[in-house]
Design a protein around this nucleic acid. Sequence first.
DNA 1: GCCAAGATACTCGGATAAGATCTGTCCGAGTGCCGATGG
DNA 2: CCATCGGCACTCGGACAGATCTTATCCGAGTATCTTGGC
Lengths: 159, 159
Amino acid sequence: MNEGVEWALHSCLNLTWVDDGQAVTAAKLAAFYELPAAYLNKQLQALARAGILTSTSGPRGGFRLARRPEDITVMDVVAAIEGPEEAFRCEEILRQGPGGHEDVDYRTTCVISQSMRRAELAWRRELSRQTIADLKATVESRFPYTPDSTRSWFANLRT
Amino acid sequence: MNEGVEWALHSCLNLTWVDDGQAVTAAKLAAFYELPAAYLNKQLQALARAGILTSTSGPRGGFRLARRPEDITVMDVVAAIEGPEEAFRCEEILRQGPGGHEDVDYRTTCVISQSMRRAELAWRRELSRQTIADLKATVESRFPYTPDSTRSWFANLRT
DNA sequence: GCCAAGATACTCGGATAAGATCTGTCCGAGTGCCGATGG
DNA sequence: CCATCGGCACTCGGACAGATCTTATCCGAGTATCTTGGC
């Protein structure tokens, strides 16, 4: 799984703590965790394409959340970075085997494909259950100072 | 996810249908689905290292199941091919952030890491629930002729 | 003092390399089988 | 006829390339801001 998933999730969470309507540049989001700025920018572009963030060019530009945190699931972010296709992609090798038919959809009939798909659905369901707002609430209950310290860090950025 | 996972699962299933004590060569298992023999061999080696198969060199050699199908879970096969480490590997970028501590294990405290881990556990649990014997039973109930036709295919291999 | 036009600095966005992993291939080491050979 | 020994064909196992994806970097297009000049 892409490293960018972790970066994207943390960046989305950080974006929930900046002042509303305030865009944050990829450079600032990257500096927060000392990440390569240009590469993080690439990941944020993917989030923008997926409709999770909105991007603004020019001075005072940057990224901000496109929807409310309650409406962004962890699955949305993962899918935006990793792509929509499943991790296990059934190549339907049964078709090449003896007795394989050309017109059968082995993605649905093959027992192995079904088993893998069932597991992946459980994974997706678990990721869809949690929203960015849930993560935010959990962090705030455990570390109450985080919102203020994060906001102020992005407000007066050092270096 | 590796293509080899699909190959390995199908091969394990096929091995449940050959006569007991009969070793099957990688070449035969590959020919069944028209797969590249040498590469499938590589995957089967991984299964052997994981203790799922036993391998025998020389004439009349090949691979056979090391344990009963009831004792081989789908997760075992996936882990043997993909490796034991998790798909989402938390790099603990919180440590690089402001307020990050050197001696904190963010793999367990970070909310994002927890969320991803929970989803992955659901995936693993689902894969561990199913054994090769379960797959075998399902196939046999849906396609009763499969065991015989598969066994005979491996017995008198054409081409 | 106010407005407008131009220059400017800033930011995203995509095009472009470097590295790592997956996919595929090849040949050598080891092993059991088969036949020849001698008793 | 039987046992033994040597050659041999077969199979796995790991070493060796090619392809694809991930990671990282750089520069150009567009834009809001600021400056400067004119009225």
